[in-house]
Each structure stands twice: as structure tokens, then as C-alpha cells.
């Protein structure tokens, strides 16, 4: 077990290294010149050359990579080319809202998907099953931005029940209630896609387990149906679903970029779009790296949890 975890971590290291190489070289292939953004527009050629020299942009690419990687190990992600802030502090400032949004969405998605999946598996081919299937197909097929715009149109613009975007009311109170209010729509949008995907897995996994002989035995010995479904079946059905949680993370990150943009949510996703707009390479590299680490860690956690939960897994 312990050995298995160590091995997984050792495998993740070269992968992470590959991610840094890819990220760095792709971003440095970019045609635009960050210096143009860094110095003020009226700068003389001499000033630009000086700025380039200071930023180390004249060094060969691999030297720049080594420098960047070295700084990375010290937790220094460099300075933003556009705002001149340290990238690390920019990220920390944005990390909270994103985690809040993604975490809540994930929880909401599971709170919707698991009961719906069970319900539709236990009542196969009933109206509720068809409704659930329809919902899940819609959920995975509707683009986040369209759903988001639709939600704003209905709930914010027409019904005027909820705010159109942002995290807090401008100039208003910044309490938890206000944030909660602003979160409803983006969470709804993000959770829909994930729940739609999840429901199908819960349903098929549950149907699979319900057909097993040990459940027939449980019923035959007179256990109540409720206990059979929710205790005996669910526990076994949820095991394969753990894998799906790991697969949801990259999906969630992608969804968050679009959703944050639509709802003007001040998180990492919005920062990504802004950084692309301003060709802020150092911020982009850091953002990509963070997202990649998040994916790697979630994959690792999934595998580890899976191996703990399912005793049949061998560590070879």
C-alpha cells in the first residue's frame, strides 16, 4: 500500500517535469513581445532593449527555462509582465474564490447526481428514469456559457431575483450572505455539467450492482428493500464512481474558466482570460502549472482512495 503510493508519486514527478517543459516552451513560442506590455508605449528602443536585458529575454530559451524552474523551486513564480505584481500574490488572491466556486459546485453536483442516479436505477424505465436520462444528456450537452447567459437572462435580467455577476455587491456589504447570493447562478451552471455526467455513471454502476447475486441473497433473507439499496448496493456502486471524481477535476477547471468569465467571478479562470489578453506569460505559466498540479494530485488521490476502498485492487 505505502509502496504503491510512493510509486505513484515517483511516476508523477517526470510527468510534472514534462508539464513544466511543455508549458514553458509553448508559451515562449508566442509571437507577441511581453516587453511591449511591460514598458510604457512611448519608450525609446534603448529603454526596450534595457528592459529585455533585465527580464532575461535575450538569453537562450533553455537558460530562461532553467532560471524559471530554479525560481519555481523556491516558490517564486516571477512578476507579472502587465501589472508588475508578484505572480504568487496574484494567484493567492484569486485562489480562494475559485476554490469556493469549484468546491461548492462539486458538492452540489454530487448531492443532485447520487440520489437521482439511485432513483433512476431502482426504477428503471419509469418516467423518473427517462426524466433523469434527459436531464443528464442536456447537462453534458449544453455549453457552460449558454447555460450561464440563459440563467442570467431569466433569473437576473427578467425576474431580477439574483445578481448578474461578481462575487459581492459593489459598495455593499461583503458578508457571507451576499457572496452566497452571488454564488447561486455560477454554482448552478458548473454543477449541471458535472451532475449530468455523474448521474449516468451512478445509474449504470448501480444497475450493475443491483443485478448481483449477493443482493438477491440480501433480499431473499428478508432485508427491507430500502436497506438493500442504500446500504448493500450503494456502497459497492460508489466504488467505481470514485474514479469519475478524479476525471471531473480537469472538466471542472475548464468549466470554471468559462463560467468565471460569464459571471465576472474574480477567480483564477478569469485571471487566465485576462492574462491571455495581456500576454502575461509569467502569470499564464503559473496558472497552467497550478491547474496541472491540481489534475495530477486529484488523479493520485483518486487512485489511492480507490485502492483503500476496493480491497481487490492489486498494487502491482
Amino acid at each position: 500500500m505505502f509502496q504503491y503510493i510512493i510509486r505513484r508519486i515517483l511516476i508523477a514527478i517526470p510527468v510534472l517535469f514534462g508539464v513544466t517543459v511543455f508549458t514553458f516552451f509553448v508559451i515562449n513560442m508566442a509571437p507577441g513581445n511581453p516587453v511591449d506590455m511591460y514598458v510604457n508605449p512611448s519608450a525609446t528602443p534603448q529603454q526596450i532593449a534595457l528592459a529585455k536585458e533585465q527580464l532575461g529575454l535575450n538569453d537562450p530559451l533553455w537558460v530562461q527555462y532553467g532560471h524559471w524552474l530554479g525560481q519555481l523551486f523556491q516558490g517564486n513564480l516571477g512578476f507579472s509582465y502587465s501589472t508588475r505584481e508578484p505572480v504568487t500574490s496574484m494567484l493567492i488572491e484569486r485562489l480562494g474564490p475559485t476554490l469556493l466556486l469549484m468546491g461548492t459546485s462539486l458538492i452540489v453536483a454530487y448531492l443532485i447526481a447520487i440520489p437521482l442516479g439511485i432513483l433512476s436505477a431502482t426504477r428503471q424505465y419509469s418516467w423518473i428514469d427517462y426524466l433523469t436520462t434527459g436531464f443528464s444528456f442536456l447537462g453534458v450537452s449544453i455549453p457552460h456559457f449558454f447555460l450561464g447567459l440563459g440563467a442570467i437572462y431569466i433569473f437576473a435580467s427578467k425576474l431580477e431575483l439574483l445578481p448578474t455577476g461578481g462575487m459581492n455587491t459593489l459598495g455593499g456589504t461583503t458578508g457571507f450572505g451576499d457572496t452566497f447570493f452571488h454564488m447561486i447562478l455560477p454554482v448552478l451552471v458548473l454543477a449541471t455539467g458535472i451532475a449530468g455526467n455523474m448521474v449516468r455513471y451512478v445509474r449504470s454502476s448501480m444497475i450493475d450492482v443491483l443485478g448481483k447475486d449477493y443482493l438477491r441473497t440480501a433480499r431473499a433473507k428478508g432485508l427491507r428493500n430500502f436497506i438493500v439499496t442504500n446500504k448493500h448496493a450503494l456502497r459497492n456502486a460508489l466504488i467505481p464512481i470514485i474514479t469519475i471524481i478524479g476525471m471531473d477535476i480537469p472538466l471542472l477547471i475548464g468549466g470554471a474558466v468559462v463560467t468565471e468569465q460569464v459571471f465576472q467571478w474574480p477567480g483564477l479562470g478569469q485571471l487566465t482570460i485576462q492574462s491571455i489578453g495581456s500576454r502575461d506569460y509569467s502569470a499564464l505559466m503559473a496558472l497552467n502549472l497550478i491547474a496541472a498540479i491540481a489534475v495530477l494530485v486529484s488523479n493520485l488521490l483518486t487512485d489511492v482512495v480507490y485502492s483503500i476502498v476496493d480491497p481487490r485492487i492489486k498494487y502491482e
Binding site: V19, F22, V26, A30, G254, G255, V295
Partner: peptide, 24 residues
């Protein structure tokens, strides 16, 4: 498979955004 792992641990949309903005 290691290269596949690298590609798979990319946050898909973000990398595409960056790549597309880089090559136009």
C-alpha cells in the same frame, strides 16, 4: 504512456486557450 500522462494532466481548456492564442 508517460507522454500520454503528461498530456492527460493538462487542464484541457486552459492549454488549448494558451496554444490557440499563441499560434493565432
Amino acid at each position: 504512456m508517460r507522454v500520454t500522462d503528461v498530456f492527460m494532466s493538462f487542464p484541457y481548456l486552459m492549454v488549448i486557450l494558451v496554444l490557440v492564442s499563441v499560434i493565432g
